[in-house]
Structures are given as C-alpha cells and as structure tokens.
C-alpha cells in the first residue's frame, strides 16, 4: 500500500534528493458538493521548496484543491498529506496547528477592511506570538519592505489600489514565515504592472524563504515564467502536467489551446461554459 510508506524511507529521501520526497501529496482525492462532483481521483506530488501552478479554466475545481490542502474542506475520499501529516483526518486543533505553518493569498487579498495596513500585517503575528510591540512593529515593517510597500502602514485597505492591496495581503500571508504558501488566483484583476510585480514577488519570496508554493491560476503567461512545474485541471481531473518548457512544447491539443488562449479547440466542444476562456485569459479581465 502506498499509504504505508515507512518513516525512515521518507527521511532518507529528504536527505538525499529533495525531489523524491513530496512536501504535499494527494492520493486518489475525490470531492463533491452534494451531488456535484468537483474533483475526481486526483493524484499529485509537490516536492519541498518548489513553486507549482495548478491551471485550469473557471470552475475546473482548482480552487477546491487549495481548500483541500489548507483543510478548509475535507475530501469524500482519498488522502491529503502535507509534510507527512494527514490533513483529511485532522481535528480542529490540529488543523489550526497545520495552518500556522501555512500562508494563503486570497483572490482579492481578503484584507480586513476594519484594520489598517499595519494592523492587517501584524494580525497573524499578534494572534500567534506574544511579542512586544516594538518587535511586532519591526516584523511588520520588514514584511512591508519585502513587498515594497513600506510607508503605507497607516492607510486603510479601502485607500489602496488593487495591486497594492494584493501585495499587502502577500505581506500578511508571509508574516509568520510559512513553510507552505498557497496562492488563489494571485493575478486576477490586476493591471499589467502590478501583475508583473506580484509575479516577481512570488518568485522572489519562494526562492528567498525556501517555502513550497502552490499557485492556482488561469494566467498562463505570467505563471509559466515563474513556476517550476504545472498541473492542468479540467472537469475535476488532472489532464496534463510538466515543466514550463514541456508545457510550451506540448502537443496535447488541450494544453496548446489553454497556453495559447485560443477560442476554439477541444475545450470549446467539451465545455460550453469555457467559451469565456479567452476573455478570462485577457489581462485585467476579472474572474467571473
């Protein structure tokens, strides 16, 4: 059984080759909302320290994948293992423990609208670490500097542009130096400059902090430039995977259509709703 890999085997793998010991592993995961199947028999392995993108059209179930990894929803079937721990059986306490080592950037940032930028970034620090105010302040300023927005501490989220809000949210997500970063559509609704800045930041943070990052996106161009590996999800199953170079050279019609953003192709025939795909891929078009 694949589920009973001995502990020593995993440890030795960690020491020798990072690639073969997955930080995140999904085995045979299925998920449904009521009768509606969202994901079916997903298997994937993400090695430690990698930046991986999960791509697919709207409603393909890729955001659900993130929610499964963060433990916000539990699968009906299958196993989700993050850093050797089974997420699907976690009690509430264990889940909170799990999430403490995890950061997540939400689609539109999800900044707390009633708190200032400073308090937003300080939020996870204050909640989880009893630190003196001066230390909290230093940490917040460091994180803000990391996203290039030092000096915005006193602003309220309503006063920020979309790109700035996203970067503040990123600063908040990395406030506790997470081992795992999850990005939910980090590029949606941003102008090209902010978009480039966010993409650059994600790459930089991944390399600098050594975190494992999973990014769910339908923005092919920007993600292919920064990620190490790509999974394609459609109709609740993984249909293709590969490094960015492999993906660009892929002869799968589906991948070609997705990467090039063609209106017509296999997706058009199989999924009528995906006709808006090209619009989705256009820069600045908000996610429906």
């Amino acid at each position: 059984m694949a589920g009973f890999e001995p502990e020593w085997a995993r440890l030795s793998c960690n020491e020798n080759t990072v690639d073969t010991a997955p930080f995140i592993e999904l085995r045979d995961v299925s998920f449904a909302y009521g009768e509606r199947t969202i994901l079916e028999r997903i298997n994937l392995k993400i090695p430690r320290g990698r930046l991986v993108a999960i791509m697919g059209g709207s409603g393909s179930g890729k955001t659900t994948l993130l929610r499964l990894i963060s433990g916000q929803v539990a699968p009906q079937q299958g196993e989700i293992i993050v850093d050797g721990r089974h997420v699907e059986h976690m009690s509430e306490r264990e889940l909170f423990e799990h999430r403490r080592r995890m950061g997540m950037l939400f689609q539109f940032g999800a900044l707390f609208t009633d708190l200032s930028v400073f308090d937003n970034v300080a939020f996870p620090i204050r909640e989880h670490a009893r630190l003196p105010d001066s230390m909290v302040r230093d940490l917040v300023l460091m994180k803000l500097a990391a996203v290039g927005l030092r000096g915005t501490e006193a602003l309220m989220p309503a006063e920020l542009s979309g790109g700035m809000a996203r970067r503040i949210a990123l600063a908040r997500a990395i406030a506790l130096d997470p081992q795992l970063m999850l990005y939910d559509e980090p590029f949606t609704g941003l102008d090209p400059i902010s978009l480039g800045a966010i993409a650059h930041l994600i790459k930089k943070l991944n390399d600098a902090l050594g975190t494992t990052s999973v990014m769910v996106t339908h923005d092919v161009q920007h993600s292919l430039n920064i990620v190490d590996y790509v999974y394609f999800v459609a109709g609740g199953t993984l249909i293709a995977e590969g490094t960015p170079d492999e993906v660009r050279a892929s002869d799968s019609p589906w991948v070609r259509q997705f990467v090039r953003g063609e209106a017509d192709g296999p997706v058009h025939l199989a999924y009528p709703a995906a006709t808006s795909l090209s619009a989705d891929l256009g820069l600045g078009a908000p996610h429906a």
Binding site: R99, F108, A110, A169
Partner: peptide, 25 residues
C-alpha cells in the same frame, strides 16, 4: 452586514487559514 461582507470578501476564510477562529475573534 459587517460579518456578511467579511464572509463575502473571504476575510473569514483568511482568518481561518491564518489559524484564527473567526467565532472567537
């Protein structure tokens, strides 16, 4: 309205993911 909007804008989810229980906080 405040809590509903926090839910709609994923602020409650964000809290949950930050290992902060929104009911307590």
């Amino acid at each position: 309205a405040e809590i509903g909007l926090m839910k709609a804008t994923e602020q409650l989810d964000a809290m949950n993911v930050m290992a902060v229980n929104p009911i307590a906080r």
